[in-house]
Structure formats: structure tokens, C-alpha cells
């Protein structure tokens, strides 16, 4: 379960980009975070993947207050969180398969242990024939699917995605959404940030709507 208690966040000494956030995401839930550009969706995700600490308030994940974790503990917690970034953050000098294997590699797994898993993941996202291709040779949609495969390959408990359908056509967007639904069916907690409120509402999942850094509404399923 993810718990936000009166969480505020600002960059340096700038204005608050998130204000008094109070909400819970139950284990195994599929939750949307929506809002216009600049509403604070990406900042909220940064707090969730432990890339920043709140300026005020408290965030609990996996039963721990994550605002007081050491650097090593943060690394360990991140292995339980899969993230799909808006800009993919793939490593251009590695192949698609090597990019997907990254979370397993940094966790100390050997190639022989994860090879099959990586191949299976790439097939699952429809890129089984692109394993040895490097990101600069791939389209935006293909990069997005590699990023998704990388986010889920280590079977994390929480999957976060920032505008995962923002740079792909509608057909690909539907396919990508289906991947997240499948992961959620496997028991993973999914938090998906999008500016597309219609997309969020169509699925019938809970929606956290941000406006100017504040939580304006929580649309129940």
C-alpha cells in the first residue's frame, strides 16, 4: 500500500509544486494520476520512485516511511518499483535485450539466470525480433515498449508510468494500456500518470486529479 500524508514538495526554494497531498493506493490497485501539464504529475511520480523527498509530510510504501531511507535502502526499494519514464531513459549503447535486463543485472543476477526471462519479456511487448537492436534504431513506440519490458522484467510490486501513451499512435496506445492491465491482473500495483482524463475515466479505475499541485478530486471506480 502507498500512503501519502499531507505531502508537500518544492524544487529548492521555489514555489510548492505539490501541496497537502493525502491519499492511499491499495496494494494491487490500478490508479490514474491526471492533470494538465505542470499540474505536478511527474513530481508526484518522482516522489513515488524515490528520486526526491517531500518538503513536508510523510510517504509510506511497503510499510516503511520512505522519506528517511538511506541511499542503499533506496536502491533496494527501487528494485520493487518498476518505472516507465516519459523520455524512456534507455541506454543507447546497450541493445534492447540489455536494456530490458538492466534491473536484473544491477540486482546481481547472472546472464544465464535471466536470459529466458528477458527474451520472454521482449516477445510479450512484441519485440522478440528486435533484441539486438540499439535504441537509436527504434521508433518511439518500440522504445516505449522496451521501457515497459524493463520496468516489469524484475517482477516489481509497484509499476509507475509517466505518460506511457503520450508518444505513440492510438493503436499502439491501446496495446500499451493492455500491457499495464495485464500486469495489474497479475497482482501488481499500477500508478499511471496521464494528461488524458478521458482515457483514465474510460477504464473505470480510480483517478487522482491534480490541479496546481493540489489533489482536486478522486474519481472512484
Amino acid at each position: 500500500m502507498i500512503v501519502f500524508e499531507d505531502v508537500g514538495f518544492r524544487y529548492g526554494r521555489g514555489p510548492d509544486v505539490l501541496k497537502n497531498l493525502d491519499f492511499e493506493v491499495p496494494e494491487g490497485a490500478f490508479t490514474f494520476v491526471t492533470g494538465a501539464s505542470g499540474a505536478g504529475k511527474s513530481s508526484l511520480l518522482r516522489l513515488l520512485y524515490l528520486d526526491a523527498v517531500p518538503s513536508s509530510g510523510r510517504i509510506s510504501m511497503f510499510g516503511r516511511d520512505v522519506t528517511t531511507l538511506s541511499r542503499d535502502e533506496i536502491a533496494w526499494f527501487r528494485r520493487r518499483i518498476g518505472v516507465v519514464f516519459q523520455d524512456f531513459r534507455l541506454l543507447d549503447h546497450l541493445t534492447a535485450a540489455e536494456n530490458v535486463a538492466l534491473p536484473l543485472r544491477v540486482a546481481g543476477a547472472k546472464v544465464s539466470e535471466y536470459r529466458e526471462n528477458v527474451v520472454e519479456m521482449l516477445r510479450w511487448v512484441g519485440l522478440g525480433d528486435q533484441m539486438d537492436v540499439k535504441p537509436p534504431q527504434l521508433s518511439g513506440g518500440e522504445k516505449q515498449r522496451i521501457a515497459i519490458a524493463r520496468a516489469v522484467v524484475a517482477s516489481p510490486d509497484i509499476i509507475l508510468a509517466d505518460e506511457p501513451t503520450g508518444s505513440v499512435d492510438p493503436v499502439m496506445a491501446e496495446r500499451i494500456m493492455q500491457l499495464f492491465v495485464e500486469m495489474n491482473r497479475l497482482g501488481k500495483t499500477v500508478v499511471l500518470a496521464t494528461h488524458d482524463l478521458d482515457l483514465a475515466e474510460q477504464t473505470g479505475h480510480p483517478v487522482l486529479e491534480l490541479q496546481g499541485g493540489s489533489l482536486m478530486a478522486r474519481v472512484a471506480a
Binding site: 541511499r71 536502491a75 533496494w76 527501487r78 518505472v83 538492466l102 544491477v106 540486482a107
Partner: peptide, 16 residues
């Protein structure tokens, strides 16, 4: 910097 940030976000510890 960007590569190391990605490794860290994938769960790499400093010692890795």
C-alpha cells in the same frame, strides 16, 4: 551522469 542516474533508478547501489 544520465547513464548513472538510470542505473540508480533501476536499483543499482552506489557500490555497484
Amino acid at each position: 551522469r544520465a547513464t548513472i542516474a538510470t542505473l540508480r533508478l533501476a536499483g543499482a547501489e552506489d557500490r555497484f
